[in-house]
């Protein structure tokens, strides 16, 4: 049963996921976008607020449930949106 669930999860890919690579951040299954500019980007997932700060930040890919941010990030912070 666990294996089936894992397989289904792998196929459906509904999990909220952040992949951080050099000069690249990929966020899957977010809810909405906030501020988008060269130095700062804010992305929301439920009550979670993800803040990315840096230089020359650009959106490389923006599809319904995935955003790929390229650029020199210096800070990634996670805040509770209710605060």
């Amino acid at each position: 049963m666990g294996m089936i669930r894992s397989t289904l999860d792998y196929i459906k890919q509904e999990e909220f996921k952040i992949t951080i690579k050099i000069n690249q951040i990929d966020i899957e299954n977010y809810d909405k976008l906030g501020i988008i500019d060269d130095n700062q980007m804010i992305i929301y997932k439920g009550n979670l607020k993800i803040k990315i700060k840096g230089k020359s930040l650009t959106i490389k890919k923006l599809i319904n449930n995935e955003i790929l941010i390229m650029g020199n990030y210096s800070e990634i912070s996670f805040e509770d949106n209710n605060e």
Binding site: I36, D38, I59, K60, K61, L62, I63
Partner: peptide
């Protein structure tokens, strides 16, 4: 330009790739 991207996102237009040339 970034506002344009947000507008696309709000209207369910997928940006499959983007290349910023200038501001």
């Amino acid at each position: 330009i970034s506002k344009f991207l947000t507008r696309c996102h709000k209207n369910n237009i997928d940006i499959l790739n983007s290349n910023v040339i200038s501001y």
